[in-house]
Design a protein around this nucleic acid. Structure first.
Lengths: 224, 224, 224, 224
DNA sequence: TATGAATGAGTCTTCATTCAT
DNA sequence: CATGAATGAAGACTCATTCAT
């Protein structure tokens, strides 16, 4: 009896949701949330529409197509974040300064779009990720190279560890941020601790990047 | 559901593929490879079977259904790797020693199972990952806590940076390995460089964990 | 499960069949007819849809799945018949009167839904019948007990044979109706006679219930 | 973990079940039991084999085919019962005597093969029943006509109600037996009473056939 | 006799996509 | 803009059937 056979009513046309007007934005938001939670492949048009209180047909009205939906997510959401993170990079800044800035802006951006880290890990970094090639086209390689070059200069001056790969280190830095933010729920689940807040994670990563495991105190330094 | 006599036109039952015997192992291998490349959700039974030169029906013959297939992957493959990484952890070792061992064994294990990092990131760390709960059950929390405890002891003795979270650091360490190994193809694709080999990545991570960005030379140290 | 863009070659969505509007009702009718002829287990979604000039997918559109379809058949069709048969039963009527009314209304109902007897025998009375538990929930036991009680009163007054089981007799009565109506085609097939019409069967059953094999004695005849 | 992935062992050939030798008979028995419970359409070769402790392949070894299995069930089991019921019919006996004999032998036969009533109702009487045409070929129409003829003679002599159809009455008689025996579990389930035993059902039917609902008049009672 | 491996066909079900209204 | 109806193309899963061993 709990089972309810669907008896479709015969009354077309009257809109139901998106009372505030921007149905398209609602749909895009619903899409990003589901993508983060379930991954792109597992998210159906119907699910997105339902979450926004609309019908699957509306998805096609606004986005035409699965491909176009992904285009919209990347171009209207992810590209914006990327730009906000990398645009301010200044060629003349010190490498550590650059990196601190990038990390800070990334953390800030993710606080506005919490669905980013999960989606990034799943759909961009992973081989076969469904947003990968789209996102790749929006990456500001020139800016990234600016940072690598700064690191190399720092290594030449003896201010940065020579063992580090100057390109990989950019990945390490961003990857640590994404990974820790993306796995915060996992971490909480596994260790039965409360989810670490972004700020705490930021501090942890900064500390790690600055000095690695080694302490900076005189005591430790003297003991060596 | 209708069970009526059904005479096949073509003769079934003639073995065609996997003449070398262990069809099941072939299928499992095909599955892990596709899972790594496309993700679990996007990998169909048919695709796995085809890759092993068999029919979808054989997937059901050996694994019954999707759930059981995932069980098999976790229990027969991932759990083995996890055990090989964590079992040797010795409660009395120094924290850095412990962490070095874990990283080494993990890198070695991944060299035998290159599909691990991608799958781990996508299906274990990610919320909604399809192997997550299964893998969680096989994690040796006691061993992980051993490492955290060692880090805490190190911090108490002033040998390890106090700013680091002793539990998060385990995640950072393993996450760096997984992330760099998983994104090696991405890295190569983005920067048009050859894929970094696991050893190089290992050295990079070790260097980062030891000292962070700071160089270890006297010069740098003195300057402070 | 893989959700990749899929551009249909041929244009979907063009309504083709059941232009007269109530596709759902058509499907339900097709279902009951096939259930009666082949049994529930042997009736596929595809067969039902085809009979109504639609596609299997439409079955899922209207009924979600097999379970819900069966729910619909029982709740919207069988339950209605049952109610029409038993609701009018009056606690104060004489037992023979009650039974005559039930038989009459049942025969009348079956003339509107000729698929009932076959389905009832196969899917309700039979152990393992696929509608059994669903139908059971809709049976008006209180009304049935009213009849049994009336029979018992009749037996106490010596107006009804004491050898009869007052509950079984309700089954005998309904069973005779169902069985004779269900097996009318069988009967015709076996004896190469034309199918007996419901009225003829009704008279036969009434005669049998009244006096069994024995001819009406003078005494009884006079009493009338 | 409860989930057990099947790891087929590689050891062919050694029989497991049917220690007493007659595997074929075991399979046939398993088949009839499942047919009675679930119906023919819903019973798979695998299910039958499993119930007999054998593999589906053995079903084909012994019965070749689904069609041949049904042939075997009818020819080796049902036909035997039918013969035992009808063979003894004596052309010269009184109609009531004939019918009493048929009912008695049928009840006795069913006590040896309790799966008969359910299967008969589902697969023989019902249109589309999967054993129908096969069973039809084994029916002794001459014997059935003997009974009808006797009933007609009885009606001519005024010893049997003229309102009864002399052919239908044979159906009524056998149908009552089959139906009450087949629905005994249903009856018990519905009324929360213990399953009526065949003897009680036999008495009920005999009483009903003899006099219908009417109590035995003094005259009739005295005649006995 | 008996088994395990293998297969093709078919069933249920989901889904992206289209279109008339 | 929005909906409901409709469809074809898969995907998971089942099963009768076959064959080498």
């Amino acid at each position: 009896m709990a089972r309810t056979a669907r008896k479709p009513k015969r009354s077309p046309g009257r809109p139901v949701a998106s009372a505030d007007g921007d149905a398209r934005e609602h749909l895009l938001t619903a899409a990003t949330e589901l993508f983060a939670r379930q991954g792109v492949a597992a998210t159906t048009f119907a699910a997105i529409a339902k979450r926004a209180g609309l019908t699957p047909a509306m998805m096609h009205y606004y986005f035409k197509d699965r491909e176009h939906l992904l285009d919209s997510v990347v171009n209207e959401k992810i590209a914006t974040l990327i730009a906000s993170v990398w645009s301010p990079v200044d060629a003349n800044a010190a490498p550590e300064e650059m990196m601190r800035g990038v990390v800070e802006r990334l953390v800030a951006g993710i606080e506005r779009m919490p669905w980013i880290p999960s989606t990034w890990m799943r759909e961009v970094l992973n081989e076969g990720g469904l947003l990968r090639s789209r996102v790749l086209r929006t990456l500001p390689f020139d800016k990234v190279r600016l940072v690598s070059a700064a690191v190399e200069r720092g290594q030449a001056k003896g201010e940065i560890q020579a063992d580090l790969d100057p390109v990989l280190i950019v990945f390490s830095m961003l990857g640590l941020v994404m990974m820790h933010l993306a796995t915060a729920p996992f971490f909480a689940e596994v260790f039965h601790r409360k989810e670490p807040d972004p700020q705490a994670i930021g501090r942890h990563i900064t500390a790690l990047l600055r000095h690695g495991l080694k302490p900076t105190s005189n005591k430790a330094r003297n003991r060596k």
